[in-house]
Design a protein around this nucleic acid. Sequence first.
RNA 1: GGAGAGGUGCCGGAGUGGUCGAACGGGCUUGACUCGAAAUCAAGAGUGUCCUUACGGGCACCCAGGGUUCGAAUCCCUGCCUCUCCGCCA
Length: 426
Amino acid sequence: MIDPKLIRQDPKAIADQLERRGYTFDLARYQALEAQRRELQMQTEQLQNERNAQSKDIGRRKAAGEDIEPLKAKVGELGQALDAAKASFDEVHEALEALLYELPNLPAEDVPAGNDEDDNVELRKWGALPAFAFQPSDHVDLGATGVLDFEAAGKVTGARFVVIHGQLARLQRGLTQFMLDLHSGEHGYSEVYVPYMVNSTSLYGTGQLPKFADDQFQLAGEHGYFLIPTAEVPVTNLYRDEIVDYDRLPIRHVCHTPCFRSEAGSYGRDTRGMIRQHQFEKVELVQLVAPGHSWQALDELTSHAEAVLQKLELPYRAMQLCTGDMGFAAAKTIDLEVWLPGQSKYREISSCSNFLDFQARRMQARFRNPQTLKPELLHTLNGSGLAVGRTLVAVMENYQDGAGRIAIPSVLQPYMGGQQQLDLRD
RNA sequence: GGAGAGGUGCCGGAGUGGUCGAACGGGCUUGACUCGAAAUCAAGAGUGUCCUUACGGGCACCCAGGGUUCGAAUCCCUGCCUCUCCGCCA
């Protein structure tokens, strides 16, 4: 969440910055609530002060053997006034908190203004687009031999799931292994295994709740746990309510999990194939760093995700998201889009964001400043490195040979028993 | 699933109704000693929040939420979590 002090200091400036990303901050409502909060809080605390003082006095007089009954009655009345004041304060305070929890992060200054993905800015392109001597197929047609079975998934579960068979399933596993090995071996990330279900507090921490409850899968039953929409949630929340030593920074984790998303509100989109599924595999990069290091960390994290695409020799471009296309918690986001010959389009395969202290404030994820010895909020970042399902799609489409086979990128061959190609008809 | 024990500050660990934001020990900071370090000695230091230009002051926080009371770390209820034993089980 945005620093409440900052908002109090200059609500108009905050409203202006939020307006950049298309969010209208209800200034009048905020200012009314804030004025009430201030008044009621001062009143409540003063009453509390009085009650505390008089109760202590009772203690003293009792010890001295005095008659305390009249005093007890008097302080009892004070207590009732206090309860009433406190109830009003709680109500206003809660409303104010709710308002603040729904505010998206402020976009960083250098984020281009815009409404949607059409206003995103291309930062760079990498790799030559593959030239085919034939009309390239998309992954659905390539997998139609049965290795990608959407019908079976529909029977077993429903729409937006997939069953992957044989060598292709192995290739997806190989991709996952390759990414984990690369990030942990060469990029300095520590691998971590986490629960695939989380409690609601964790989702508040990273910002999926309260606003995006519809995007989550919640389990029935007494716990009401949620299936994770991304490893970002459990991994970042590892540091909720923690004060980490400065010399442990930066914290870097790589984590492979399945991700579960309801995809509410995207009913008509990407219904074909495995681009948009309710369940997909992802290797996630998460960093927690000292403030002041986070912008550099974002560049590094992005380059780590790019390294995967480069080693797989998949052409891609890096896009800076405009204010209107960024996620709720992000101050700045760079998307990586991989080339998909089957669609003749670049499609998102990674999204790398700096959240500054927005998530850390919600989570109270802090470190101890070695100079002041005081706890301060960390900065959090994350990015896909990469979305494995979509990477599998990209490998299939870019490495197809027009005869039902796909070449296996050389970095993946060790994970495929040394095979150089894969026959989709097997 | 059954039975029991427990959750206190950065860590360990006292505290069973008032003067307890919390003994004691460790760790930490500063100073003394030292060429320097270690050891030792002395002093200091929780977190959040509100008011205040500041100085300073208030309030809250002993797992969480309720309750009893003039007053709760301490008593009662509920929940969550941890540990031990029995049963079951991948």
